[in-house]
Amino acid sequence: MTGKLDDRITFLGRKLGVFLLTVWTSATLIFIIPRLAPGDPIAAMIARMSQQSGYVENADKIIEGWRERFGLNDPPSIQYVRYLGNLFHFDLGYSMASFPATVSVMIGRALPWTVGLSLVSILATFLIGNFVGALLAWQKTPRWIKLCIPPTMIFTSIPGMLAAVALLYIFSFQLHRWLGLSAPLFPLRGAYGRGLEPGVSWPFILSVIHHGILPVTSIVLVRFGYWALGMRGMMITVEGEDYMHLARAKGLRPFYILYHYMIRNAILPQITGLALSLGTMVGGQVLVEIIFSYPGMGTLIYTAVRNQDFPVIQGATFIIIVGTATAVLLIDLLYPLIDPRISHQGK
């Protein structure tokens, strides 16, 4: 059995290698690209400051001081090594727009919200979509269900942003007025109620769920149709497989066949798709976050772009890439558990 273990270690090593290579390449690109751009970020910043305040005293001195402080006077190779070293400690520098705050602290505050929102909505979309798709294709699904589902898929053809705005309008602006209630059914903005102390307490958790329902729904509504259609196609393919024929001949119970023979096989390619969408976990919900003023990475990047806050943009980009690479790595490692034909030994 040591042979098998060795194979697994080789497999793990190779996947980790690819992961590190991805992270390193992206870090290097993030290092190079701003330096290739014409102009000097510090000078640009001073220019912006002088635009805002009209005049900056001792601009030259400030520029020089900052160049020294950010290490821009050192040769590029030294800068590069120091940059990598800092990244390794997740030291992403200081925000320019909200200066004394470090980028890592800002990201650290935003990241959990985004990951939470994305994870819940991606998983909900996946489960609902595939369930619906399986029902659409299954021969024994009652007719009325098959008739009721397709109309709900029109949401797939509207842009996600619009769905978010529409939900917000209906459930946070209008519905309570029509119903004659004093407060909106769902909160307008944010991730939790004002005045609540983040922590493990029931009021806080309930408030987070309450605030999360509309953003999650807007994502699920727009995306579940893709999963459903993909799953339906896969189910139909599986339906024609020889093993389905044998399964019916065996006289197995319909639900047993549905789960163990059909869904179990049809879901495999869908899981690859899930891996890809988990990759977008950190960076995928920018627009929804902005519309709901959700304090995650999307809002952070949006604000940073508006303020030309380069360290934050770079740091956030880097974290998004690391997040994506990590998601892909995890899926690669877990996939053999789901599809026995892909083993750790194989290539």
Binding site: Y243, L246, A249, K250, G251, H260, R264, N265, P340
Partner: peptide, 24 residues
């Protein structure tokens, strides 16, 4: 009919190569 299947009437299928469920 489902109860009769296999207990009375079994099949050795034509496409035996693909007749087993790949994930079981």
């Amino acid at each position: 009919m489902r109860q009769l299947r296999w207990s009375k009437l079994a099949l050795i299928p034509q496409g035996a190569m693909n007749s087993l469920n790949p994930t079981m």
